[in-house]
Nucleic acid binder design. Structure first.
Length: 940
RNA sequence: GCUCAGAUGGUGGAACUGGUAGACACGCAGGACUUAAAAUCCUGUUCCCGUAAACGGAGUGCGGGUUCGAUUCCCGCUCUGAGUACCA
């Protein structure tokens, strides 16, 4: 029979499901290998052709590893809490669980049809109470922990309480809030329970505090920094504003240094690591205290007089060595000391400026970056190293959220300070001998210091050390490491997320009892905030904890995805998020494939939770994902038709082919890519596409209508969405799998283009034909394989091994084509050869291979766990090589030379050749380079 | 602006440590089979010169360099894509 992919694929998909072929074993002597895909959010649109790219690659790898004798864990699940289902619920009143369930069913159908070897018995859904019970449980562990800087790890909060009881707050070195109290053991014991709890909250790894958040009014919720792009929400593109709110946060900053260091231990793409490094934003520098003498006139009636004059302004700098060039200080307009620093004369200026800065949105402020603006407070500070009096300004180029919200401005070395100094006529002092500061700041670290007191003549390294030593000596500063990363906001004022397992008593949060988990999402009448602006959960009737009010916000999208790889290890466990044995056996993810868009969100939070869970002894290793590959984005490839515009500028019903469009006035119209093949428009389908095109006329070239092409995002509105279902129906899953790999390197982004898919389909048919005679009857021979057949086989064995190990799946597909072309040319139908070919190809095209595997007399279902053929280099040994002979680096001819000959003999052989002499034209080569088995080059 | 990745035929791409550039596939052209079409098969296909072959010349974004030899290494530049952006 000819290759009937439809029957074959349905048959084997059913077989795998019925027999649980890919169920991973938890008890085995085989080495483990964990292959993970980033699980999808099940959206209403279903999978498009870009989604499976990574899944296919990981599936090939998983199947390959099984053949190599590994016990492979290759699971799939759904990140099923999320905004779209909730937005849909708000519009339609339909419970998001119902929408989500339906979407998951679609995803499952689509995934099944591609023939993935997932172990579905381990499926997880983050929105299922069985799952989020453990997300809540992990939240509780974070709540019950604090970060001990001395031990450099998280520890139980009980241990901290014990310390407070015995020693008070002395000797505690914690990552905590700024405004912690100092107390003795007796003072601690004298505190009320409420006071103690309030104090402990400042240490917990998940904690409640008033913070400035990204508030998105349109979505009615708070967003994390990585969910905001250019002042708009990443999902939906709604404006985002800054707002102060009481919020749950995660003390991820405690792990900043470990998150940074850990990057050196994992095999991830360099750009991804770089993004995380930038996001963490470590900078090594110094805190410097500038004293402010009380210079303010006391006899002026001024509201600012009610503010005490601040004694000290603290700044953060990475260039302590430039302190002698600091000619003014700049504070963020929001800085808390501004009011106290402002003199009566400057009050109007300052109030004006602050009002102006407040009005500016985040976006305006960014686009305004080039404009210099600021205001003088009227006060002065004293430079701690030389006693110089420097003016204190405010300006919005200094951010309240970074460092101390204040900088010492060194205009000679910093371009922003330079522009500011020029604009307001402030002094600019050269501090390094080779510094060039006529037209712009020069941030050089080369040269020797001048105009710099006790560091004159020193180099950068010496000067930095000397300045910090001096600052420490006079108590005016110290070395300090600063991070750009902020603690992560961990709450959303939304319905469709994990409830936070917390209730409130006397305005303080307490965990619910562990036995009461999961805290199930209650029913509500509407999915909107209440009239007085409380989150949707406030609508739940009789929803309380023994009469106490629950936390009303839910967890953010990244909560459930920050630990899900552990759940796959032991997905059905009711007693733990995963058993000790399962965690000990599976440990971590060996290969993780997914998009780079999760660089500073999911991937960072996952590493954070993993480290925390390691600290408190829940998991075995420090990093969750040993090796990570980013698959490229599949972009859309849009097609266009060109409508002719008449003299009055109106669109006609005539369409001109791409090549002739310049001869007319035209407007281009997106046309559905599914009615275009190889850029040729199917005219009948076009007429049927939309009623207004039913009578369309065409100006053709060579009898065809050629469409224009452009690469854009894959999106419904460009009519360029290609659905895997259509491809699978038309060509089958095996062709889809191989074609997605054939498209190019996995990591590279590329437009989806079905132009080459026929070639892959033809290849599978050719492969099928190797096993059949001209009448399509199964026909293989049991003869001894020939030397040529063995050479083809072993070439492909080696090639596939090398390619899979380096994730170069596109080149293997080409190599399979070459192998099949060679075997076809050899008229080979050798059973032994074909049996091995089936195994090698099976990770890529599993259905066709399963079918042929049984044809060859093997037991159904054994293919997935058989052994990958062993490569034998003996079959590739040649006794001759066609040396390229080149003259001055240009190849002139090929010459067959025995490989037994060594350098000098090869040279003699070449020079003896009449063909070579013809090229030499009687001349004697000056030099002959022979690289054995590679090339001969003659210099004439 | 900064950081990173990339640029190879008409198209997707290959060339793994400096050693025959363009594998494999698409497309295109020609041919076979067919009443015809589809399917299938065969041949050709980097560009220039040429009816064709032989021969010759150019050629991996651009300009230089190292080398017997460079898509590969070094220096400078252009363009494209991604990330990030007053981070002191």
């Amino acid at each position: 029979m000819d290759y009937q992919f439809k029957d074959i694929e349905q048959k084997w998909q059913k077989f795998w499901a019925d027999n649980q072929t890919f169920k991973a074993d938890d008890k085995t002597i085989k080495p483990k290998y964990y292959v993970l895909d980033m699980f999808p959010y099940p959206s209403g649109a279903g999978l498009h052709v870009g989604h499976p790219l990574g899944y296919i690659a990981s599936d090939i790898f998983a199947r390959y590893k099984r053949l190599k004798g590994f016990n492979v864990l290759h699971p799939m699940g759904y990140d099923s809490f999320g905004l779209p289902a909730e937005q849909y619920a708000i519009q339609t009143g339909q419970h998001p669980a119902i929408t989500t369930e339906a979407n998951i069913a679609t995803y499952r159908r689509q995934l099944d049809q591609i023939g993935f070897s997932f172990d579905w018995s381990r499926e997880v859904r983050t929105s299922s109470p069985d799952y989020y019970k453990w997300t809540q449980w992990i939240f509780m562990q974070l709540f019950n922990s604090w970060y001990n800087k001395d031990a450099d790890k998280a520890e139980s909060i009980d241990k901290l309480v014990k310390h407070f009881e015995q020693n008070g707050s002395a000797g505690i070195n914690a990552v905590c809030d700024d405004e912690i109290q100092s107390f003795t053991a007796d003072q601690w014991k004298a505190m009320s329970n409420q006071e103690q709890q309030a104090e402990l909250l400042k240490y917990r790894l998940t904690y409640l505090r008033e913070s400035t958040v990204n508030w998105c009014p349109a979505l009615g919720t708070v967003l994390a920094n990585d969910e905001v792009k250019d002042g708009f929400s990443e999902r939906g593109g709604y404006p985002v504003e800054q707002k102060k709110m009481m919020q749950w946060s995660m003390r991820i900053t405690a792990y900043a240094d470990r998150l940074l260091k850990g990057l050196d231990t994992i095999d991830w793409p360099e750009p991804l690591k770089e993004m995380q490094r930038n996001w963490i934003g470590k900078s090594v520098g110094a805190l410097v205290k500038f004293k402010v003498p009380n210079l303010r006139p006391t006899n002026v009636e001024d509201i600012y007089d009610t503010e005490p004059t601040p004694k000290v302004i603290e700044v953060f700098t990475t260039r302590a060595d430039t302190i002698f060039g600091a000619t003014f200080l700049v504070l963020a307009p929001e800085h808390e000391l501004v009011a106290g620093l402002t003199t009566a004369e400057q009050k109007a200026d300052i109030t004006n400026y602050i009002a102006q800065a407040k009005k500016k949105s985040e976006l305006e402020r960014m686009s305004d970056a080039k404009t210099v603006s600021g205001a003088f407070t009227g006060s002065y500070a004293i430079n701690p190293v030389d006693g110089a009096k420097v003016p204190i300004w405010i300006a919005d180029y200094v951010l309240a959220g970074y460092g101390t919200g204040a900088v010492m401005a060194v205009p000679s070395g910093d371009q922003r300070d330079y522009l500011f100094a020029k604009h307001y006529n402030l002094p600019i002092i050269q501090i390094i001998d080779i510094q060039k500061i006529e037209t712009e700041a020069d941030p050089t670290k080369e040269g020797h210091y001048v105009n710099s007191g006790f560091i004159n003549g020193l180099t950068y390294k010496e000067a930095t050390a000397a300045v910090i030593a001096k600052l420490e000596e006079v108590g005016a500063g110290k070395a300090k490491v600063n991070f750009r990363m902020r603690d992560a906001i961990f709450g959303r004022q939304r319905y469709w997320g994990e409830p936070v397992p917390v209730y409130f008593k006397d305005e303080l949060p307490y965990l619910i009892a562990e036995k009461d988990l999961p805290l199930v999402l209650p029913e509500v009448d509407k999915y909107l905030p209440t009239e007085d602006g409380e989150p949707p959960l406030a609508r739940a009737k009789d929803w309380n904890y023994n009469g106490y009010e629950y936390e009303l916000s839910t967890m953010p999208g990244w909560a459930g995805s920050s630990w899900y790889w552990f759940r796959y290890m032991d997905a059905q466990n009711d007693d733990a998020f995963a058993s000790k044995e399962a965690i000990e056996y599976w440990k971590d993810v060996d290969l993780y494939i997914g998009g780079s868009e999760h660089a500073t969100g999911h991937l960072l939070y996952s590493r954070f939770w993993n480290k925390f869970m390691k600290d408190i002894g829940l998991v075995a290793v420090e990093e969750p994902f040993k090796k990570l590959i980013n698959q490229g984005m599949i972009q859309g490839r849009s097609n266009f038709v060109y409508r002719v515009i008449d003299d009055e500028g109106r669109g006609t019903n005539t369409f001109v082919s791409f090549g002739l469009r310049k001869e007319y006035k035209t407007s281009d119209i997106h046309v559905d890519v599914n009615i275009v093949e190889n850029d040729i428009l199917n005219i009948n389908k076009f007429k049927a596409w939309r009623p207004e095109f039913a009578d369309a006329e065409f100006i053709l070239e060579n009898g065809k209508y050629v469409c224009g092409v452009e690469v854009e995002k894959m999106s419904k509105r460009y009519y360029n969405v290609v659905n895997p279902d259509d491809i699978a129906t038309r060509y089958g899953a095996d062709t889809l799998r191989m074609y997605e790999m054939f498209l190019g390197p996995l990591e590279q982004s590329k437009p989806w283009n079905t132009n080459g898919i026929e070639g892959v389909f033809k290849f599978l048919r050719k492969f099928w034909r190797l096993f059949h005679n001209d009448a399509w009857e199964f026909n293989v021979s049991a003869n001894e394989p020939s030397k040529a057949e063995l050479k083809t086989l072993h070439t492909i064995i080696r090639k596939v091994e090398e390619d899979v190990e380096r994730f170069s799946f596109n080149t293997s597909v080409s190599s399979f084509m070459i192998a099949v072309n060679e075997l076809t040319a050899l008229k080979s139908n050798n059973k032994a050869i074909l049996n091995d070919m089936v195994i090698i190809l099976s990770p890529y095209a599993p259905h066709i291979c399963e079918e042929l595997w049984t044809f060859l007399g093997n037991e159904a279902g054994t293919l997935s766990y058989t052994s990958f053929p062993k490569f034998n280099p003996a079959y590739l040994v040649e006794d001759e090589f066609a040396y390229p002979i080149s003259i001055n680096g240009k190849t002139k001819l090929n010459l067959n030379i025995p490989l037994s000959l060594e350098g000098a003999d090869v040279e003699a052989f070449v020079l003896a050749s009449a063909d070579v002499q013809k090229y030499l034209d009687g001349k004697t080569p000056r030099k002959v380079i022979v690289v054995k088995g590679r090339i001969v080059n003659m210099v004439v």
